[in-house]
Design a protein around this nucleic acid. Structure first.
Ligand SMILES: NC(=O)c1ccc[n+]([C@@H]2O[C@H](COP(=O)([O-])OP(=O)(O)OC[C@H]3O[C@@H](n4cnc5c(N)ncnc54)[C@H](O)[C@@H]3O)[C@@H](O)[C@H]2O)c1
Ligand SMILES: NC(=O)c1ccc[n+]([C@@H]2O[C@H](COP(=O)([O-])OP(=O)(O)OC[C@H]3O[C@@H](n4cnc5c(N)ncnc54)[C@H](O)[C@@H]3O)[C@@H](O)[C@H]2O)c1
Lengths: 230, 230
DNA sequence: TGGGCTTTGTGAATGTGTGCACGAGTGCCT
DNA sequence: AGGCACTCGTGCACACATTCACAAAGCCCA
C-alpha cells in the first residue's frame, strides 16, 4: 500500500545504480540468499555501503535494522521503482553490424525489453531475419510503434543518419531513445535520450593511460609503461 | 611554449566531455570552419557555453577573447590532453555476437584504437576471420599484449566469463579495460575500468518512462498522449 | 526482561559539478 | 587613436553527490 510514496524524485546518480543493485539482488536470490546487508551488497556492487543505504532509502524503508534487506522484497521494490513491472518493447533502427548483434542478443528480451521490430532503409536488408526478428522497412516504423506500443527506440545507424532516425522515432511516438551513433541528438523537450559512445569510452581510458605514463605529448610508441601499481 | 608542464588533474566530468568536443571540432575543421566560439561549440555539443569554456580552461588558455578558439589548434590540444597523439591498440576478448560487431567496426581503428587482436576460448572460433582480424586462442593473449604493446582490453564475453577475462587481461599486462558484460569487475588497484551496460541504460530509460506515466504535469510537448502500460 | 550485538536510516560535513555574471583581452571600425 | 562590440577566463554561489558517524531499531540469548 502506501501510495503516497510516489512523487519523490530519485537522484540521477541513484537511478543509474539501481539497475546494478537489481542485477546483483536477482543473482543472489537465484543462489538462495534471502537476506543481504548493505555491506555485502555494496561489496558486490563495488561501491560504498553508506551509498547503498542512502540509495535504497529513496525507495522507502525496506530494510530491517540489525538484519539487512530481504532480497526478494527488495528486488520487487527496485523493479517497481524502475518501471520493470511490465515489458518495454523496443524498436531498433539500423540493421547493420551492431543492429544485428543487438537483435541477436538474448539479454535484451530476458531483461524485459523484447525487440518489437528492427528497421532499415536498405532494401537488401529488408526481409532478412536477424535474431528471430524480420527486418522491415523504415517506413513501417510508425506502424510498429503503434501496434506494439513501443516507447523506446534504439539507434544503430551510421552517425550521418542518426538524427534522421531520431526524428522518425519521435514522430512515430517514441519517447525514449538509446543512441549508439557518435552524434549529439537534438530532440524535442520531454524526449529522454541516452547515448552509448564507444569512442568516448576508449578516449577516457586513453586519457588515464596517457596520464599514467607520466606522459605528455610526443611519447612515442617506444616507451611501454608496464607498471603494475598495486 | 607553455612552461606549466605539470600534473594538473582534469575533473572526470570534463574528461568525459572532451571526446565529444573533439569529435565536433574535427567535423567542423573538416567542413572548413577554422574558428569557433564557446557558444557555437556548446550548441553543437548540447551543453552550456560556460561549461565549455570552463572545460577548455583546464587545458590552458587556448582561446582568443573577442574571437573564439582556433579549431585546428584546439583539436591538437584536446588530442594531446586525451593522449591521442599516438594509437592505442586494443585487444578484444570474446569473439561472439558483439566481439564480431566490434571487430568489424571501422570507427575503432579510425579513431586511433586499432584492433591488435581478438581472442576466444572456443576452438571453433579460433582461426576464423572477423573484420580482417584472425581470432586467436585466449592462451595467446599475453603474447599479443606484449608484442603489440596493448594497454587497453575490451571484454565481450558472457557475464560468467568476464571476471576470468579481466584477470587474464591484467595478468597479461593490460592496464585499462572496457567491459561490455553485465558484471561488476574486480581488478587490482591502478587498473582502470569502464563499463558499457545495455541493460542499465534501458532500465534508466524505463524509469523515466514509468515516471512519465505517473503524470508530472507540463513535461512533454503535447505530442504523445499514449501512456503505454501494456 | 534486559543487555549486547548488528545493521539500518539519516543528519551533517565534505567533495564535485554547474551556471551566472562580469572583468579582462582582442579585433574592428570610424 | 579611441571607442565599441565581442568573447574568453574565472570567482562565486548554488546544486548535487558522496561519505562519515551515530542514534534508533531490531534480533538473540541468558
Ligand atoms: N559495429 C560496432 O561494433 C559499433 C560499436 C559502437 C558504435 N557503433 C555505431 O553504431 C552505428 C552502427 O554501426 P554498424 O557497424 O552497425 O554500421 P553498419 O553500416 O553496419 O550499419 C548501419 C545500418 O544502418 C542502415 N541505415 C543507414 N541509414 C539509415 C536510416 N536513415 N534509417 C535506417 N537505417 C539506416 C544501413 O542500411 C545499415 O544497415 C554507427 O553509428 C557506429 O558508429 C558501432
Ligand atoms: N550482443 C549484443 O548486442 C550485446 C549487447 C550488450 C551487451 N552484450 C554483452 O556482451 C557480452 C557478449 O555478448 P555476445 O552476444 O557477443 O555473446 P556470445 O555468446 O555471442 O559471445 C561470447 C563469446 O565469448 C566467448 N567466451 C566465453 N568464455 C570465454 C572466456 N573465458 N574467454 C574468452 N572468450 C570466452 C565465447 O566462446 C563466445 O564466442 C555478453 O556479456 C553480453 O551480455 C552483448
Amino acid at each position: 500500500m502506501a501510495p503516497d510514496r510516489n512523487r519523490r524524485r530519485i537522484p540521477d546518480a541513484t537511478v543509474s545504480r539501481l539497475p546494478v543493485y537489481l542485477r546483483i539482488l536477482s543473482e543472489q536470490g537465484d543462489e538462495g540468499v534471502d537476506s543481504i546487508s548493505s555491506e555485502r551488497l555494496a561489496e558486490l556492487a563495488g561501491v560504498n555501503a553508506a551509498k547503498v543505504r542512502k540509495d535504497l532509502s529513496y525507495l522507502g524503508s525496506y530494510g530491517t535494522r540489525g538484519v539487512g534487506y530481504e532480497v526478494a522484497y527488495l528486488v520487487y521494490q527496485v523493479r517497481r521503482e524502475l518501471g520493470l513491472t511490465h515489458d518495454w518493447p523496443v524498436v531498433i533502427v539500423g540493421a547493420g553490424n551492431l543492429g544485428q548483434a543487438l537483435a541477436g542478443y538474448n539479454g535484451f528480451g530476458e531483461r524485459g525489453f523484447p525487440v518489437a521490430g528492427i528497421v532499415d532503409v536498405d532494401e537488401h536488408k529488408v526481409g532478412t531475419v536477424m535474431g528471430g526478428v524480420r527486418v522491415r522497412h523504415i517506413d513501417e516504423l510508425p506502424q510498429i510503434v503503434q501496434t506494439k506500443r513501443v516507447n523506446i527506440g534504439v539507434i544503430a545507424t551510421p552517425g550521418g543518419a542518426a538524427q534522421d532516425a531520431a526524428d522518425r522515432l519521435v514522430k512515430a511516438g517514441v519517447t525514449s531513445i538509446l543512441n549508439f551513433a557518435p552524434v549529439v541528438l537534438s530532440v524535442p523537450h520531454g524526449i529522454e535520450t541516452r547515448k552509448v559512445d564507444l569512442a568516448v569510452e576508449l578516449q577516457i581510458l586513453s586519457y588515464h593511460e596517457q596520464r599514467r605514463s607520466g606522459g605528455v605529448a610526443g611519447a612515442a610508441v617506444g616507451s611501454n609503461p608496464r607498471t603494475a601499481t598495486a
